[in-house]
């Protein structure tokens, strides 16, 4: 069934971006992190800015993002990535600086840092992975966990009286004057991934215009934490996560 005539270098239309290292990702099968990493690598590669980009990785599953994208990285303490990025960008204004943060990192322990980086209008890009759960520590409730959703610390489902409500931090940040571009995307289909990639590229381009912070939320899956297969997790995300976290642009100061 394989067509050997077609398998020639000149016929390649898609392959792993050169900026992704050959390290096997430690993520679970089907994890959105890998797809988002790839899109970021593609954007940096296509913009030709490998030598001008500094990534800040978070605490959580994607702490090891630095093993996969071949750029210089700083690994931050839990939630503090926007502070590192702030200083990096201010001290090296010619650089492209982005943080990569999960929902626990950004929307729980790091709320002060992200809010004030947005409020100051730091010219950085923030990639926010929202899968509604803590992955690395074993599936505990995140600030973005949906009501009724079962996690290891909400074993009977998230109850607002006991656990509070899901935090729509992206909409909150859009209200801050220092943000330039705020969008919510996903990567579960090819079309969605292409849109997400365009959004990431726009974020990087905006960060060079010095018009404020660009924030790209990626509604993601954690199939291990959700206890679903990768394909089932994508469906569950479409049915449940999108209802609370609808995809699309929320703010664009240049539009």
């Amino acid at each position: 069934m394989e067509n050997l005539d077609i398998k020639r270098p000149e016929n390649i239309v898609y392959r792993k971006p050169a900026l992704l290292t050959d390290n096997i990702m430690h993520y679970c099968p089907g994890c959105s992190h890998g797809t988002v990493h790839k899109l970021i690598a593609e954007v940096i590669e296509e913009m030709g800015i490998q030598d001008q980009t500094v990534g800040i990785s978070p605490v959580g599953c994607s702490v090891f993002a630095y093993n996969y994208i071949d750029i210089d990285w700083q690994e931050a303490a839990h939630g503090r990535a926007p502070a590192l990025a702030t200083a990096t960008k201010r001290l090296c204004p010619e650089k492209y600086v982005f943080t990569y943060q999960g929902d626990g990192d950004l929307a729980s322990i790091g709320t002060a840092e992200i809010i004030h980086a947005c409020s100051r209008g730091e010219n950085i890009v923030v990639i926010f992975i929202n899968n509604g759960i803590y992955g690395m520590t074993g599936g505990q409730m995140a600030p973005t966990t949906l009501l009724g959703m079962k996690t290891s610390t909400t074993p009977y489902g998230r109850d607002p009286k006991l656990n509070g409500f899901p935090l729509k931090i992206t909409e909150m940040l859009a209200a801050l004057d220092g943000t330039a571009y705020i969008t919510r995307q996903s990567v579960h289909t090819a079309a969605a991934a292409r849109k997400a990639k365009n959004a990431i590229r726009k974020g990087f381009e905006y960060s060079a215009k010095n018009i404020g912070l660009s924030f790209i939320e990626i509604v993601s899956t954690c199939n291990s934490g959700w206890k679903l297969s990768p394909v089932e997790a994508n469906k569950w995300m479409e049915e449940h996560m999108f209802a609370k976290y609808p995809v699309g642009d929320i703010k664009d100061v240049l539009k």
Binding site: N3, D5, I6, K7, R8, N11, I12, V13, Y14, R15, K16, P17, L20, I24, M25, Y27, P29, G30, C31, S32, H33, G34, T35, K38, V187, H188, T189, A190, A193, R194
Partner: peptide, 13 residues
């Protein structure tokens, strides 16, 4: 495009 582990190379004519 959706492969999280970037293991697929695509050829087209």
């Amino acid at each position: 495009t959706v492969c999280p582990d970037s293991v697929i190379t695509v050829y087209r004519v």
